[in-house]
Design a protein around this nucleic acid. Structure first.
Length: 817
RNA sequence: GCCCGGGUGGCGGAACGGUAGACGCGGAGGCCUCAAAAGCCUCUGCCCUUCGGGGCGUGUGGGUUCGAGUCCCACCCCGGGCACCA
């Protein structure tokens, strides 16, 4: 017999070559017209260095899904690209002087090489990097469309600034008061910046979550981030200055309990209000101090409430009382109106402030154990004869109606979501296509002049303004409107802009006339299955949803929700900790693939545990997977040599039946694990292992060659989505066929039922015996037989059987007393 | 503090309310070999046992049920998200 040694180094490149030569995974846009087309997408990688183990997991999961879809008869779009703009490449450039384009392209080459070695089934005809002018030309085009529609705008605002990266950040990029990228504490600065008006879409972004099949926790995170609150806007009037100050409150029912009024230190009127009062200096010092603090300091838990009086009052519109005004940093400028009515009797924060400054605490709702603050529901009191005694929820409605009639307030909805700050004072990003003309001011670059190409510079170091400002030849330009001198915008776009529409471009990557053809996109979109890390639960996934809605509203698209189903993968750790160079616990996919082959790496990563959970890497586990693939391949290779190529016999002997039934059981199990969106690859692979365990020489017994061949080729076929090379090789040896061209096997329901089963016999719910019985035996026969079992008799022991529970195909339970 | 996940052998993990621990790792013993590697076979939750079997076991305490890892209530621990959002 020939020496059958499993050699991935020989097998894997051979099949990769076939797939590359034949462009097996290419689909045309005509294929999308197929009713059963499918779009399977993994989040595009940020190319830095070479792929890490998280990439391997992401693309292995996606590839398994794509293969399963193909073999169940669908045309599958499964593309790849690179999120190529961004800070790491730029920081590398600052350190080494190497152009970010060079390091990025070098990294992309590594990713391409690895993806090919992993055998990922990608349609390479649709590949691009977001840093290529042929792509970002259309990023700029989209920006201009949003600008024309008023959805991109400039405004002067208090924005978050990272002092290390020397750029502003979006709210979403601040984690616990620190920069998401570099971890340094962020500051607040008053700057004019570019924003996308995502807040216009807050309500739709919230309600449309109900239309998509995403993990519930991801939807919850988005809901929390959008932060919808129903309440009322109520106007308080400052008589001394003759100015109205509206506030947002979710509790207008407590209006009669307001005893003071607080403004945020960032509120633009604070200094003006204090001017001319004895408190001016104190207010100015307080405001300056607040500005010097980091957001982390300001939002520290258990922080003592502080503030100073403004020396002014406002009038409470419901009762005409004059409330003293304060400035205090527990009021945030970015939520509501930057000013609040304070109700210390029914709000914990207001109560803490009132305690610290000796302010009146008034009860206007009955309830609780007598202590204030009381934040629960109850009847109104101490308010107004019209409302006292009413349940507070009802009073709330009546009070708002009254305010509305009087023109002093109205019901409204507030969102926590802020507009998306998209400009960055950095080099390696998509230029914002506008110029500033001396006579015309801000002028968008005309569509036909796109792309505004990113110029080369010699110094990438940020100095509080974009490094692009130094590229004088580029910055100095002419106004498209008048031809006069103009300056280019030197800020670049947040890289999340680039990744907010890339999945649309894959549908029509070579389009020269627009970002995509509406019909081409309509044929593939939405993405049927999107797969990526949960770290993008808010940022990318919210922005991409916003882009689709905005582009759809503007008539360029017909996609309300880009990702119909989402799967979020867990992290791979080692020794219980996140892999990092500093901990020295990094597992490189390259090393694993070098040592064991891609299929072992892929299968191990799927077998390690449920893919949505975190999992800990184990070197010995990898070896176990390699042993399994090796055993499967060897059994198939030997089988191809030694087993006659017979059909499965019509009359199955006992050993044949056992093997053939196990094969059908495995088909059923793997199919269910892959379908239905559960993606329990670990149990699917375990089922194939069980099948193989039944097929070892020692266990085959008197099974016929035809039955063994069938079972082996079934195992090879089921393995394909996980280990495509090994599967293709084993399947071709056994059958001469190409596994990716044959339909997914179907389980025969008749063969899923065995003719015998193990009946479990219990007494009072405890297992007392197990008996192999015929599946055709009647309930009466089985119960009678079970009752006579010696061990059952021993446990019944003269007591009375009061009940007999019979579960067909499973068990008998005697209840005795 | 609020909102999500999750607590099962030495380890990763299986288990439509119906045999807890599938599958794999690790461990023990054996076969093959001059030897080793590789491969193959058997055993492997804990305790007791006269080897028939018995008891205990899924974070803790209750409950529902003929029967609970699974459902309900209360609590403890771990991980994640949000966090002065008026």
């Amino acid at each position: 017999m020939a020496d059958h040694r499993f050699d991935p180094e020989q097998i894997e490149p051979r099949w990769q070559q076939v797939w590359a030569d034949e462009q097996t995974w290419h689909v045309s846009n005509e294929d999308a017209a197929d009713a059963d087309s499918s779009y399977v997408l993994e989040m595009l990688p940020y190319p830095s260095g070479e792929p890490h183990i998280g990439h391997l997991k992401n693309y292995t999961i996606g590839d398994a899904v794509a293969h399963f879809h193909r073999r169940t008869g669908r045309r599958v779009l499964h593309p790849m690209g690179y999120d190529a703009f961004g800070l790491p490449a730029e920081n590398h450039a600052i350190k080494t002087g190497q152009h970010p384009r060079e390091s990025t392209n070098a990294s992309i080459a590594q990713f391409q090489e690895q993806f090919r070695r992993w055998g990922v089934s990608i349609d390479w005809d649709r590949e691009f990097g977001t840093h290529e002018p042929r792509y970002y030309r259309w990023t700029q085009w989209i920006f201009l469309k949003l600008f024309d529609a008023g959805l991109a705008y400039r405004k002067d605002a208090a924005v978050i600034w990272c002092p290390v990266d020397q750029t502003v950040l979006a709210n979403e990029q601040v984690i616990e008061g620190r920069c998401e990228r570099c971890g340094s504490e962020v500051e607040v600065k008053q700057l004019e910046q570019w924003f996308f008006r995502i807040t216009d879409y807050a309500e739709r972004l919230l309600t449309d979550l109900d239309t998509i099949r995403w993990p519930e926790h991801v939807k919850t995170m988005q809901r929390n981030w959008i932060g919808r609150s129903e309440g009322a806007e109520v106007t308080f009037h400052c008589e001394e200055l003759g100015i109205d100050y509206p506030v947002f409150t979710t509790r207008p029912d407590t209006l009669f309990g307001a005893t003071f009024f607080v403004m945020s230190p960032e509120h633009p009127d604070v200094l003006r209000l204090a001017e001319g009062t004895p408190h001016f200096e104190a207010v100015r010092d307080y405001v300056n101090h607040a500005a010097s603090e980091t957001t982390e300091e300001r939002s520290a838990v258990e922080r003592q409430k502080t503030g100073v009086p403004l020396g002014r009052t406002v009038v409470n519109p419901v009762n005409g009382e004059r409330l003293p005004m304060y400035v205090a940093d527990y009021v945030l400028m970015e939520y509501g109106t930057g000013a609040i009515m304070a109700v210390p009797g029914h709000d914990e924060r207001d109560f803490a402030f009132a305690q610290a400054y000796g302010l009146e605490v008034r009860r206007v709702i009955e309830g609780g154990d007598g202590d204030l603050p009381y934040v629960g529901d109850g009847p109104l009191t101490n308010s107004h004869p019209d409302f006292d005694g009413l349940p507070n929820r009802e009073a709330l409605v009546r009070i708002v109606e009254w305010l509305d009639r009087e023109g002093r307030g109205h019901s409204t909805i507030n969102y926590r979501l802020r507009d998306w700050l998209l400009s960055r004072q950095r080099y390696w990003g998509c230029p914002i296509p506008v110029v500033y003309c001396e006579t015309h001011g801000l002028v968008p670059v005309p569509e036909e002049d796109l792309p505004v190409e990113l110029p080369d510079v010699s110094d990438y170091k940020p100095k509080g303004r974009s490094p692009l400002a130094a590229a004088e030849d580029w910055v100095n330009t002419t106004c498209p409107r008048c031809g006069g001198p103009a300056l280019r915008e030197t800020d670049t776009m947040d890289t999340f802009v680039d990744s907010s529409w890339y999945f649309l471009r894959y549908c029509d990557p070579d389009n020269d006339a627009g970002p995509f053809d509406r019909d081409a996109v309509a044929a593939w979109m939405p993405v049927d299955q999107y797969i990526g890390g949960v770290e993008h639960a808010i940022l990318h996934l919210l922005y991409a949803r916003f882009f689709c809605k905005a582009l759809t509203d503007l008539g360029h698209l017909d996609v309300q929700e880009p990702f119909a189903r989402l799967f979020t993968q867990g992290m791979i750790t080692r020794d219980g900790a996140k892999m990092s160079k500093s901990k020295g616990n990094v597992v490189s996919p390259r090393d694993i693939v070098d040592a064991y082959g891609a299929d072992t790496a892929r299968c191990y990563i799927l077998f390690i545990g449920p893919p949505d959970q975190d999992a800990d890497w184990n070197d010995q586990g990898v070896e176990g997977m390699h042993r399994f693939l090796s055993r499967l391949w060897r059994l198939c290779a030997e089988g191809a040599d030694t087993l006659r190529d017979d059909p499965v016999p019509l009359d199955l002997g006992a050993d044949d039946a056992r093997i053939v039934r196990k094969a059908h059981w495995a088909i059923d199990k793997v199919t269910n694990d892959l379908g239905g969106g559960r993606f329990t690859f670990n149990t699917a692979i375990a089922a194939i292992m069980e099948l193989i365990n039944e097929l070892t020489e020692a266990k085959r017994g008197a099974a016929s060659d035809g039955a063994v061949r069938f079972a082996l080729s079934t195992a090879a076929s089921l393995l394909f989505p996980f280990a495509p090379h090994t599967s293709a090789d084993a399947y071709s040896m056994l059958t001469g066929g190409r596994v990716w061209e044959v339909p997914w096997p179907e389980a025969d329901p008749a063969l899923l039922e065995a003719d015998t089963f193990e009946l479990v016999v219990q007494v009072n719910g405890k297992v007392r015996d197990r008996v192999q019985v015929s599946a055709s035996a009647s309930q009466e026969e089985l119960v009678a037989m079970a009752r006579e079992l010696p061990n059952v008799q021993a446990h019944v022991d003269g007591r009375v059987i009061v009940k007999e529970i019979f579960v067909p195909g499973k068990l008998v339970n005697f209840v005795v007393r």
